[in-house]
C-alpha cells in the first residue's frame, strides 16, 4: 500500500500529457479533421510555455503561452487544410516536421535553464483525507485541468447542442451544410481546440512533468495520443482510460524492473504497446458499436457545392 499511492501519482503525471493531447485530437477528429501534427504542436506548446515562464516568472503565463503556441501552429494547419483543401494526412505530418524545427529554433537559449515546476495546489480539507487526499487533491493546476477537460469534452460531445452540431459536421458535412451550419468555421474551431490542448500537453511536459526545455523532449508522445483516440473508438471516457492504461503499464514495467523480473528490458518496454493492441482487439469485436462512433467524414475535404 505504501508504494501504491506514489506509484499511482507517477501514473497520473505520465497520463496527463497524453490525455490533453488525445482529448484535443478527439474533438478535431469528431468534426471530421484528422491532424497528424500533434507531436509538432506539443513541442511548440512546450517551448512557448517554458519560454514564457523563463521571461515572466509566472506559471499562469507559461500555461497560457503553451496553449497559445499549440493553437498558433494549428492555425497553419487549419488554413492549409480547410482553406486550401490540402491533404490532411500530409499536412499534419509536415506540421510535425515544421514544429520540431521551429521549437528547436525558439528554444536555443533555453537549454540548461532550470525551473522548479508548477506549484502544487492542495485543496483544503480534501487533501487531508487519508490515501484519497494525496491521490486526488494535491496536484498542480494542469492535472486538475485535465480531469475537468475530460469531463467537459464528454459533456460537450454527448450532452450539448454545440457538440451535436460538431458531430453532425463530422458525420456528414454535406448534410450539415445543407442545414445551414458553417462547416468550415466549426471545423476550424475544432482544429484550434485540438492545437490548444496539444499545447497544454506540451506545457505540462516542460513545466511539470520534467520542468526544463530540451529539443524534441516530447519523445513521440504525440503519436501515442493519436493512437489513443483510435483506441478510445472516439469516446472521451475511453480516451481517459486509454491514457491511464498506457501510462499505468509504462510505470508498472519500470517498477517490475526495480523488483527484478529477469525479462529483457526491451520486452518490458514493449508491454504498453502490446497491451493497447490487445485491449483494442477485445473492444472492437463488436463491429457496429465502433462504426457508430467513428466520424464518417474524417479526413475528407469539404467544399460547398457552388
Amino acid at each position: 500500500m505504501e508504494i501504491l499511492i506514489p506509484a499511482i501519482l507517477t501514473v497520473i503525471t505520465a497520463a496527463t500529457p497524453l490525455l490533453y493531447a488525445a482529448l484535443g485530437e478527439l474533438v478535431a477528429e469528431k468534426s471530421g479533421v484528422l491532424n497528424l501534427g500533434v507531436e509538432g504542436m506539443i513541442l511548440l506548446g512546450a517551448v512557448c510555455g517554458f519560454a514564457a515562464v523563463y521571461l515572466t516568472g509566472s506559471a499562469a503565463a507559461g500555461i497560457f503561452a503553451g496553449l497559445a503556441g499549440g493553437m498558433a501552429l494549428s492555425v497553419v494547419f487549419g488554413v492549409l487544410v480547410l482553406g486550401f483543401q490540402a491533404s490532411q494526412v500530409a499536412t499534419g505530418l509536415a506540421l510535425t516536421i515544421f514544429g520540431i524545427g521551429l521549437s528547436a529554433l525558439l528554444g536555443q537559449e533555453l537549454v540548461g535553464v532550470a525551473y522548479q515546476g508548477l506549484p502544487k495546489i492542495s485543496l483544503p480539507l480534501l487533501s487531508k483525507i487519508p490515501a484519497l487526499g494525496p491521490l486526488l487533491f494535491r496536484h498542480d493546476f494542469l492535472v486538475y485541468g485535465s480531469f475537468a477537460m475530460a469531463f467537459a469534452v464528454y459533456w460537450f460531445l454527448a450532452r450539448s447542442r454545440a457538440g451535436l452540431v460538431l458531430r453532425a459536421v463530422g458525420d456528414s458535412h454535406d448534410a450539415a451544410h445543407a442545414m445551414g451550419y458553417p462547416v468550415v468555421r466549426i471545423r476550424f474551431a475544432a482544429v484550434l481546440f485540438g492545437g490548444g490542448m496539444a499545447g497544454l500537453a506540451g506545457a505540462y511536459l516542460s513545466l511539470a512533468y520534467s520542468p526544463l526545455w530540451i529539443e524534441n523532449m516530447s519523445a513521440g508522445r504525440g503519436w501515442i495520443a493519436l493512437a489513443l483516440v483510435v483506441f478510445a473508438t472516439w469516446r472521451p471516457w475511453r480516451v481517459f482510460i486509454g491514457a491511464y492504461l498506457f501510462g499505468g503499464i509504462t510505470i508498472l514495467q519500470l517498477h517490475a524492473q526495480v523488483l527484478g523480473v529477469g525479462v529483457p528490458a526491451q520486452v518490458m518496454s514493449m508491454l504498453p504497446y502490446l497491451a493497447t493492441i490487445a485491449v483494442l482487439v477485445l473492444i472492437s469485436r463488436d463491429r457496429n458499436k465502433i462504426k457508430l462512433n467513428a466520424p464518417a467524414c474524417i479526413g475528407k475535404p469539404f467544399h460547398p457545392a457552388a
Binding site: 486550401f84 491533404s87 500530409a90 499536412t91 509536415a94 515544421f98 514544429g99 524545427g101 528547436a104 536555443q108
Partner: peptide
C-alpha cells in the same frame, strides 16, 4: 532546426 522550418514551409506550399 532551420532545415526543419524550411522543409516544413516547402511542404506547406506544395500541399497548398
Amino acid at each position: 532546426a532551420v532545415t526543419g522550418v524550411f522543409q516544413g514551409m516547402l511542404l506547406f506550399f506544395l500541399l497548398a
